[in-house]
């Protein structure tokens, strides 16, 4: 019978083969294990098997009469193709990144950024201000809850305010903004280099309490000739292990600074002449890390999944009308 088919028909039949589906599934399984074990980017590894499965599916839909007779089965497979296409488009247009904001500071861009080559979102139109956080600990200490207070400009230009937490991100212009458990202390300085305008700056010390024993940071003020090493000595029981507590600033906010072989100590309100400028210590504040995520395909992928699973359920529901095991089992 195959001999009667033209070459394109034979190719289409080969491309639509269920054996090819199995090969595609096998390759997808192998590449998934490889992605997992090698901890590499999944996209290049999975692209091949997914493309093979998509082509196989398109060929099967075009050539296999079963799909035309069984509409739910066709819809299920088409939804899978849509899902794969959306995932591919999502990889081209997504963005994920991180930002660290001092209390009272406005978002001014990401410190860590990873985006698809076609990402053309509106990151620069995101206007939000970190207004502080409320972090609670259980004995241990174990992080219990993590809420950040934000003020933001909505799409109509009105200022809004609210609280976000890990399960309740702020969604703004398609970007999803999450608080993280990455947070810490931030000494705030006014730095005035010689013959320049004074600048209000903060230094983000390492995340606390994850790095409780190394609350120091090296920092070079703009226009300064040499870097400063800034240390905040923090009492060990600031977050007690034996009772519930909240993240709070230490009462003792003295800083130890080093520059070259010179050592300084500063209390809030004190000033320091450093030769190339003047450093004033305004006080201690906090900073918080935010995660920013953008992928416009997510709701469409969810819709495709819902269609796929509903149609698969419907397909099996229709297919399984008879019960051959009932007859002789009584």
């Amino acid at each position: 019978m195959d001999e009667l088919l033209s070459l394109p028909q034979r190719l289409l039949r080969a491309a639509a083969s269920l054996k090819l589906t199995l090969l595609g599934l096998l390759l997808l399984g192998i590449t998934t294990v490889l992605v997992y074990t090698r901890q590499e980017s999944a996209t290049p590894w999975l692209a091949g098997p997914l493309l093979l499965l998509a082509l196989n599916l398109v060929a099967a839909v075009a050539s296999n009469k079963v799909f035309r007779r069984q509409l739910p089965l066709l819809v299920f497979h088409l939804a899978l193709i849509v899902l794969v296409l959306l995932a591919a488009i999502g990889r081209l247009t997504y963005l994920k990144g991180q930002a660290e904001l001092t209390e009272g500071a406005a978002f001014q861009g990401l410190t860590v950024r990873e985006a698809g080559p076609l990402h053309s979102g509106a990151l620069e139109q995101l206007h939000f201000i970190h207004e502080g956080f409320d972090i609670r600990y259980l004995p241990g200490p174990v992080l219990d809850s993590n809420q950040a207070r934000l003020r933001w400009e909505d799409t109509q230009g009105r200022m809004q305010s609210g609280t976000i937490e890990p399960n309740q991100p702020l969604v703004l212009r398609g970007y999803r903004i999450y608080p993280t458990s990455n947070k810490g202390f931030a000494p705030v300085f006014v730095w005035q280099a010689h013959q320049r305008e004074p600048l209000l700056l903060s230094v983000h010390l390492p995340s606390y309490p994850a790095n409780a024993l190394s609350q120091a940071q090296t920092w070079q003020p703009p226009g300064a000739s040499e870097a400063l090493w800034v240390l905040l000595p923090v009492a060990a029981d600031l977050i007690p292990a034996d009772r519930p507590s909240r993240f709070a600033l230490p009462k003792e906010q003295r800083l130890v600074l080093r520059r070259g072989d010179k050592r300084y100590e500063m209390q809030p309100g004190e000033r320091l002449e450093l030769g190339d400028g003047t450093l004033a210590y305004r006080g201690l504040s906090t900073w918080m890390g935010y995660r920013v995520f953008y992928d416009w395909t997510i709701p469409w992928m969810l819709a495709a999944c819902a269609v796929a699973l509903t149609s698969m359920g419907l397909h099996f529901w229709r297919k399984f009308g008879d019960q051959p095991w009932q007859a002789s089992s009584a």
Binding site: L22, L25, L26, L28, G29, T32, V33, V35, Y36, A42, K96, P166, N167, Q168, P169, R176, Y178, R291, V292, F293, D295, I298, M301
Partner: peptide, 26 residues
Amino acid sequence: QDAWGRYWAWDPLETWAFITWLLLAA
């Protein structure tokens, strides 16, 4: 997506649950 800001990250449970789905489909 709500909890950690990503819907899929190939972590151990996600990966093995997906491989299970693939094996079942196969």
